[in-house]
Design a protein around this nucleic acid. Structure first.
Lengths: 145, 145
DNA sequence: CCATCTTACTTGTGAAATGCAAGTGCAGAC
DNA sequence: GTCTGCACTTGCATTTCACAAGTAAGATGG
């Protein structure tokens, strides 16, 4: 597991602060959710899907996530216009954070997607294992091409 | 467990989106960390501590966290100038989210506070139980006054 | 091989959020 | 009554954001 050298302008060394500086905005975690749970991989999918992110913001977030080593890109071998965005190991390792946030909101707010919520509540570890396995399969297929 | 009616202007019903809309900024989670782990309870403590939040932003974030039912305030009975900020049950229930974020950053970044990290890694459930118990004790003392 | 379409962006503009410095109002201490 | 401490608010410059429009490079159809 390769670690980055400490960024020069970090506000503090607290690990929570590090997470917040990478993920603490209104879009990054939603993009990661789409990659992790919905299997989205291209710019267009992110753009037209979910909560309606602006195109310049999406480009900026993808750039930042890549700079932080959370995602990578590769050209689609079948269509040279397409860039395929993939989660790195560091990225897929955010799965427990996302699931805890989903569980928390589901406990305290009126939310949709109860199927997902119940699946996580039913067996969290199994859910995480499934997420990780789907990622591993996809990643092998993708990097093999 | 009382739930809020769905906010009219939510971008989507996804539970992750709900969490992100309440907590997805550069300060809210740090304030909650200070309450949960460092025992901070007053405006002044939040202000002069941690990563240097601006006073107007702090006032704004505290207002929003209270509006979302994550924290409450009460007057200090011993000093009428002081407001004491306390985590609600919904607030302390964010402990698993914070710990997962700490663990993730500790795994993938160079961060400080290794003592805390090792304590969580060593036994996550015990750590969470201790956090919850400290909260329960403080809350009983506080609301009894 | 040329026109057209798709994809992944960038650019421009106004609105909103943020950061910083200074000031206000109220409670308590002296 | 003055002075200090606490929890803010206000004003202003800077940064970030959202929305609309435009662009470059690769694919597609004739």
């Amino acid at each position: 597991m390769r670690k980055r050298k400490p960024s020069p302008k970090r506000r503090s060394g607290c690990p929570l602060n590090a997470s917040v500086e990478m993920l603490g905005d209104r879009w990054s975690l939603l993009i990661l959710r789409d990659m992790m749970l919905r299997g989205f991989r291209t710019y267009k999918e992110f753009l037209k899907s979910h909560e309606g992110i602006a195109t310049n913001i999406l480009a900026d977030r993808l750039r930042k996530l890549e700079a932080h080593g959370i995602i990578t890109t590769k050209r689609d071998p079948a269509d040279g216009r397409k860039l395929i965005y993939l989660l790195t190991a560091k990225g897929i390792d955010l799965a427990p954070v996302l699931t805890e946030m989903v569980l928390w909101a589901a406990r305290h707010e009126e939310t949709g997607n109860q199927a997902l919520v119940r699946q996580i509540q039913n067996d969290k570890e199994q859910f995480l294992a499934a997420v990780r396995q789907r990622w591993a399969e996809k990643t092998i297929r993708s990097t093999a091409n």
